[in-house]
Design a protein around this nucleic acid. Sequence first.
RNA 1: GCGGGAGUAGCUCAGUGGUAGAGCAUCAGCUUCCCAAGCUGAGGGUCGGGAGUUCGAACCUCCUUUCCCGCUCCA
Length: 518
Amino acid sequence: MAQEDLFKKLVAHCKEYGYVFPSSEIYDGLAAVYDYGQYGVELKNNIKKYWWDSLVRLHENIVGLDSAIFMHPTIWKASGHVDAFSDPLIDNKNSKKRYRADVLIEDQMAKYEGKIKKEVEKAKKRFGETFDEAQFISTNPRVLANKEKLEKLHERFVKALNDSDLVELRQIIVDEEIVCPISGSKNWTDVRQFNLMFSTEMGSTAESANRIFLRPETAQGIFVNYLNVQKSGRMKIPFGIAQIGKAFRNEIVARQFIFRMREFEQMEMQFFVPPGSELEWFSYWKETRMKWHRALGFGDEKYRFHDHDKLAHYANAATDIEFEFPFGFKEVEGIHSRTDFDLGSHQEYSGKKLQYFDPETNKNYVPFVVETSIGVDRMFLQIISAAYTEETLRKEDGSADSRVVLKLPPAMAPVKLAVFPLTKKDGLPEKARTIMNQMKFDFNCQYEEKDSIGKRYRRQDAIGTPFCITIDHQTLEDDTVTIRYRDTMEQDRIHWSKLQEIIQEKVSMRTLFETIAD
RNA sequence: GCGGGAGUAGCUCAGUGGUAGAGCAUCAGCUUCCCAAGCUGAGGGUCGGGAGUUCGAACCUCCUUUCCCGCUCCA
């Protein structure tokens, strides 16, 4: 089956079986916003628990935090989001291609630099050994002309950027006669700013209102609280702070189901380390986080690292953990060595010292930060797309049959156990209820008595329930039930007092934690 | 945001200007009893929304919205 078809089926399956619904569907939906249904929310909670416990519970030096979505507006200036999150974009009307206006101008500046370099190299060849590069650059008329153009352009460009003057940016592109690399045309639209941060007003009246932003990442809530946590928790570096929460980005193009949404949930852990040790910790977390993903058992070949060549303004090393989705390898988690950029910047903007006193060396310093940041929704999509399986079966009479089964890791499955009476009479439902009422204290259970037993199995397969038990007439005599396994479809007859132990062993996260623990 | 494609029942889809359909699913009853069984009946759609053309629009035109694919960004 084509991967694209598979993805479409997956999206349909998510809706049909109560995992993910389009938001506000009865009002025609809202672009790139989705709601998690009755099973989706369970899976999502299991993902969050797996992440949280693997960090906060298994590491003595990592603690949690739940910071507010609303934060002081200056935080987003300090973090660089106010500047970096508003790209000036321009479209070419002929090729219909969109470009970042600032990138077009930067390319133009690179062109001038290239011209100068060419002149220098030409001259170098001509003069040979006696060539004085510095003198040539300061005297050659062609070089000087290009240099002047470059400097003028640079000055104009920087001013326009600082003033956020979009009209001027467009004028620069027109004046420089920059053409579209594809169509070669100069037929440009206006430059438009897309601010990727959502904003709202805090304060009851318009006059007194403050423009505040919905956080575009959860990380800053950790940075601004790092000293609170360090002091109140008597944390010693290295230590980490973990947080799960919603973040919001007004993406220009949000697509691919829940892969890129405007409202999404992040699980972030910021690890504070002494300056100079950040790259060691970076590689430690790189490996540790990869183990966490692989422990789910979807196959190691489904994952890879993608190291960044081009680093963000705050990072000195960065990698992504990519997973092979139906639409290709895509980022699920980012691991960044953020240096002291964030804490340093907050120190500057707030005027408050954000230093850590190291009692061993008797020195103060601003810690460096290694970040692991993962999208809950992407993790959800990873799990559900890896679990979605269409199987062809052979019936007893030899004819073909098929089933759709979500092969979720049992620890992630929304429903752990389904309880079926074989028939609706002879006291079987009552017996089934009795057993279910015991099991529900330990596991998320579901009771079903409607339709044939086969149909009920298939329904549970479709939502990924790892275990089904059937209560039949023999159960009434000797308290044994048949337990049926989702993946193999095999059955065993066991005494029902053994159920708790058998299921617990499979659905517990303990095995996962043992795999990833150091 | 720009270009291309699409939107009909919960799901998959048929229906090319003349009374809105099928299969599956849902609900009730009967029958069967370990892998999507059968019979009977029921519910469910202002055909994404709005406007226009027409005696008459799911179908033609325009606008709008949502989804999918490409451009850009990213968890």
